[in-house]
Amino acid sequence: SNNDYNYTVDLSDKSLILISINYTVSETLEIPSTYLGRQVKNLSSSIFVTTDTSNVKTLILPDSLTTLDNTNIKPIYTLENLVIGNGITEIPDSFANYMNNLENVKLGNNVTKIGKNAFCGCARLKEIKVSDSVKYIDDYAFIGCSFNKVLIGKNVEYIGDEAFGYFDYILSNKGNSNILNPYYVINGYSSTAAEKYAKENGIKFIDLNNQPADTEQTYTYINDLVAGDINLDNKVDVNDVTLLQNYSACNVEFNDFQYKNSAVTHYITSITINNVTEIQRYLSGYIDTLEIYSVG
């Protein structure tokens, strides 16, 4: 009971698996690389469940950890900063998805795979640096993140469906597809999966072999888009009506943000004259607000 941690021992190499924490944790929780003179190689799935982590903002996982498969960090709902040690080679599926306060993630230098939905829905995540060690990024790994630019290392071989540049918000008026961010930029290298992914998804690609990276980060929060704002100038006026009429006449094409903002009626499977009429009614004062009906 006087120990800082409860633990079990892996008898094959005498390393430790930490089960629970017996002290009051502060804003920064740093897991030790050794305890009682033995290497800490793993964490129990219950370690953050049984610990009061309500004050924790920063979690530092040491280089000694070799796997995150049993590590459940989601009980640390206040977590803002995550440092993953250099002993980790794979980020598990759904490892940190929908952690709404997570802002900064530092991946270890030896991560080769980022799992499916690993950081899905982390809307406040400021950026992610995908180093040269990473080879495989699974489906939806960063869907729903608000950062608009990413730099992907030169050794990436596979990027899964909607891993970057998408929001997990369904466009009913565009074949029930997720929203593609029209402002997204992928910085990477030609002849890699980064270039292939960008081209297949219509995302701007900067080849770092020939151009400097565009890393001045900007952000888009999907809930900040304004219903009825078709030209994306953050207001609703007659220009939006005109643009929507032009779309209905097949004179212009829309990006996904424009599709979302045009879904202002219950006729959500397509854009029709009803959408135009609804915005006109709003501008004329017949209705007080516009509501988006295409929901994810």
Rank of each mutant, 00 (worst) to 15 (best):
N3P: 00
N6R: 09
Y7M: 10
D10A: 12
L11Q: 13
S12R: 13
D13P: 11
S15H: 06
I17S: 10
L18Y: 10
S20A: 09
S26C: 08
S26M: 12
S26V: 11
E27W: 02
L29K: 06
G37A: 09
V40E: 01
S44E: 07
S45E: 07
T50K: 13
T50C: 01
T51A: 12
T51N: 05
T53G: 04
S54P: 00
V56P: 07
I60S: 04
D63E: 11
L68D: 09
D69L: 13
T71H: 02
N72Y: 07
P75I: 06
I76Y: 04
I76S: 05
Y77F: 10
T78I: 03
T78H: 01
L79W: 01
V83Q: 07
I84D: 03
G87M: 12
G87N: 12
I91T: 02
P92A: 03
Y98G: 07
N100C: 04
L102S: 08
K106G: 03
K106A: 09
K106F: 01
L107V: 12
V111K: 08
K113R: 15
K116I: 05
K116T: 06
F119R: 02
R124D: 10
S131R: 09
D132W: 11
D132Y: 11
S133I: 06
I137T: 08
Y140G: 02
F142H: 02
I143T: 15
G144V: 13
C145R: 01
K149T: 14
L151C: 04
G153W: 15
I159S: 08
G160C: 14
G160T: 08
D161A: 14
E162C: 14
F164I: 05
F167S: 05
L171W: 12
N173D: 14
S177Y: 00
N178F: 15
N181F: 01
P182F: 14
Y184N: 04
I186K: 10
I186H: 12
N187T: 06
S190V: 00
A193H: 02
K196F: 09
N201K: 00
G202P: 01
F205A: 10
D207T: 07
P212A: 02
T215A: 00
E216Y: 00
E216V: 14
N223G: 03
N223K: 01
D233W: 13
V236A: 02
D237S: 03
D237G: 01
V238E: 08
V238L: 14
V238I: 15
V238K: 05
N239D: 09
D240F: 04
T242D: 15
T242G: 12
Y247W: 04
V252F: 03
E253Y: 12
F254T: 03
N255T: 12
N255L: 13
D256A: 05
F257S: 07
K260R: 13
K260N: 10
A263F: 09
T269D: 13
E278I: 05
I279F: 04
R281Y: 12
Y286D: 07
I287H: 07
T289W: 08
L290K: 02
I292T: 15
S294Q: 06
